[in-house]
Structure formats: structure tokens, C-alpha cells
Write a protein that binds this DNA or RNA. Sequence first.
RNA 1: GCUGUGGUGGUGUAGGGGUUAGCACGGCAGAUUGUGGUUCUGCCAGCCCGGGUUCAAUUCCCGGCCACGGCCCCA
Length: 444
Amino acid sequence: MVQRPRGTRDFGPTEMKRRLAFESLLEEQARRHGFSRVQTPIFESLDLFTAKSGPGVVSQLYAFQDKGERDLTLRPELTAPVMRMVAEELRNETKPLRLSYYGQCFRYEEFKKGRYREFYQYGVELIGATGPLVEAEVIALAINMLTEAGLKNWELRIGHVGVLKQVLTGIGLNGTSESGEPPLASAMRFLDKADFDGLKALFETQSISTDFVAPLKQLSELKGGQETIASARELLSTMDGVSLEALDDLESTINSIGQLAPSPPSLSVNLTVARGLDYYTGTVFEVHVPELGGEGQVLGGGSYKLLHLFGLADLDPCCGFGLGFDRVLLALEAQAAAEGRSEVVPGEDDETPLLAIIPFNIEVSEVLDLVRELRESGIRVEIELRSRKIGKAMGWADSIGASYALVVGPRDFEQGQATVKRLADGEQLPVALNTESILSAFNA
RNA sequence: GCUGUGGUGGUGUAGGGGUUAGCACGGCAGAUUGUGGUUCUGCCAGCCCGGGUUCAAUUCCCGGCCACGGCCCCA
């Protein structure tokens, strides 16, 4: 037997119902926030991703050459392709652009729970505007999506890369360097790893007062909700030459979010989040769910500069996020299971009545017009296709989850009548053999 | 990159160096040629792959593949 490639998954009918419901739920929220869906190719030029993330990413890509020896790769994420698309085709559109996207991405790496080689990402990008209100709009959308999905117990972690950058440049660290890692980046790395000895050593080589180490340590250890900002403001005001602009922006963003979306179950402010990436410029945020263990991050984003890579520096920075579709579903499934709920995603069960039509000892052609009309009316209709005995057919109707069964045999047919059987309680309802009569029986 | 555990019908499992490889769910058929979800009967369908040890391997050993975890990493 040929097996599915490692790290990939099949989705059967039951699972797909759930995934489609989740996707349209996300799409509906995006729509209400003014976002429009776009789609880009499954494979792109290799350069697109090496330009964004450096040559090191190639080892984690499904990269290949086509017959024209062009270097291509399956896309590992969707932000860069969307940026490429904006640069290539959406230059003339009215800004700001509010774009949403959904699709599979591919990374060649070991997979774990919630981590696959083929995975699905939903995301949005708001392009052509910058500032606290833009960030608030994007984060509010993320909150609304997770809230509507019924996710519980999640934590929004929010920070601002500018806070730390402004502090570090304010005390004299350089953001560029002739060779090797810039001192600014080293300092951020030390803070991220809580390596204060390393930070001290760095300050010494850069001729910066090591008096700054203590307040930086305090800053990086600030934890808590919105009140963290006030504590940080106090701390930073003791340091000469440090701008409070980023902190003010962050506060403004959080205030606006409070008006645009319900409060998340938990909000924590962390001023030293690095998100590992140097293209982030402003507010950064992540959502974590405890149910997922080590792979608990289900959403991440922020303000970033990427469009300058495509010659559109004037549109930087943008703000967006990517939502781990599979991970959120895993979390929802875990939570539903814990609560003994069968519905995982709101609306995943199709409430449209399903009618099983069982032609019995008649020519099927006698009922096909009726089938068409009933389908046109919007209900779901399945015909028994195997001409089985009536008992078996009834069992089939039951097991496909039909709410009603309509047996049409010679006797009914002669009289232009039949009975609709409500499968939940076995109640039989006499009907005429026409759409109107059958539909009205559903409401009886 | 490191590491732990495991792979028996479609699913969930029992067993175990020589077995007709057991059970449950499922699917199909019949009991029941105009009425299902209960019952009974029958049928369908399995030891992940390769090598080794052995008279004999699904069982023991090694490797691979796959699955599920824990670290590292994660654009």
C-alpha cells in the first residue's frame, strides 16, 4: 500500500465539515472587518523566501528545480507571497489594503503535535497604513476570530519591539555594524535569553555604563497585564535619553483594542518579546493555548517592514498576523473533548434537513424531477442508489443522518401520494408527491 | 539536531517461536420481497517493510518506514 507522505494528513468528510466551518467562521470575521480574501500560488521562486528570511531557510523548504531549471519552492508561509502580490499587482488599489488569505504551507522539518510538514495558515495583512490604530484593528480581528470560534482559556501576549530598541539606542548601542552582529541585536538576544552577564560584558566592550544593566533586567522581568506599561514608564523615565514613544504607542494600541473587541481571557504585556525576527518594527503579539503543550502558540503577528524588499518602502510598515489553523482546531478539539461537547466549531453541523428518497419497485426516472425540485428548494436530498430492499434502505437513510425518509412505491405513485417518515421518532406524515407538500411536512 | 515509546483486519484491541491468530465496532447478505435505529445467523477483512538467528519468526535481534510523546529550533 502506498502511504501518505510523512508529515501530511488526509481529511475525511467529518473532519472537512469542521474545517470548512472554521474557515468560513474566520472568513466571516475578516469580512466584517473589511478584509478581502486573496490567493497566491502554492509554489513560488525560491528567491522570495531567501530574500525575506535569509539563505538559511532553504534547508527547511520543499525546494526544487522545474524543467527549465528555475529554482522554486513550495511556500513555507504566506506573508511574503502576499507582499509579492501587492508589489506585483495591487499597486494601484486604494490604500490601505485589508487582505486575508488561507492555504497550505510546507516546511521540511520534523513534525510534532500541531506541527506538520503540510499545514494550513489563515492570516491577514493590513497594508498602507501604520500606527496604533492599525495595530489595534488587526489585533481586534484576531481576538474576535478566536472569540467567535469559541476558544477558551487563551492568552494574548503583547509587546512592542520599539520599546527595547529605543532604550538600547537611547543609551548608546549601535544598530549597525561593519562585521558580525550589531551590538543592538546582541543586546536584544542577551535580554531574550536572560543572560545579564553577557549583557554586562557587551556593555563593557561598547563603553556603555553597566549601571544600565539593572534597570534593563527589571524591565525584562516586568510581567502582568496592562498595568505593566505604567511600571515600565516609571522605570524608563529614570534613564536619560530614552524615548517613551513606543511605550505610548503600545498603550494607545491596547486602549483601542479594548474598545474594538471583547477582553481576551488573559492579556499579558511583555516588553522584551523579540519574536526572533528583525523585520518587526512595532507592536508584536502572540496567542498561546495551554492545551497544546510545547507547541502552544496558535497565532502570531505584528507590525513589520517587508515591502521595501519589493521596492515599496513607502508602504512599510504593515501589520498582520498568521493563525495556525491546525493548532487552533487541535485546541478547540481538546477543549470540546474536556467538556464532553460534540460540536467543536460553532456551526459545523449542517442543520439543513436531509431527505432520503427511497424509490421502491418503481422506475427511478419517476422521481428524478421531484429530486431536482427539492434540491432547488435548498434542502439536501439523497437517493437510494442500490435498489435495496426497503428495510436496508431505511437503515441506510438512518445511518447517513437523514432527518426524513420518503419511500415512493407503486401504490403511492399511482395515487400521487406518499408518506414522509420522520426518522427521529418514526412519525409518518402523509404528503402529496410534490415539493410543496413534502416541505410542509417537515414543519408539521 | 537529540531522545523515549509503540506498530496485529477499515477502526479499537487480545495473544504469542509451531495457533483454523481471538474479541468488539464496521461493511455486506439473510432471518424480514412496503418501513430503520433492538436481536439472531453468515460472510468480508489483519500480524508495517527488509535482513538476521532458528528445523520453524507475526512473535526474538538489527536496520528502515510509519505513528505518538519530550527537549532544541521555528520565517
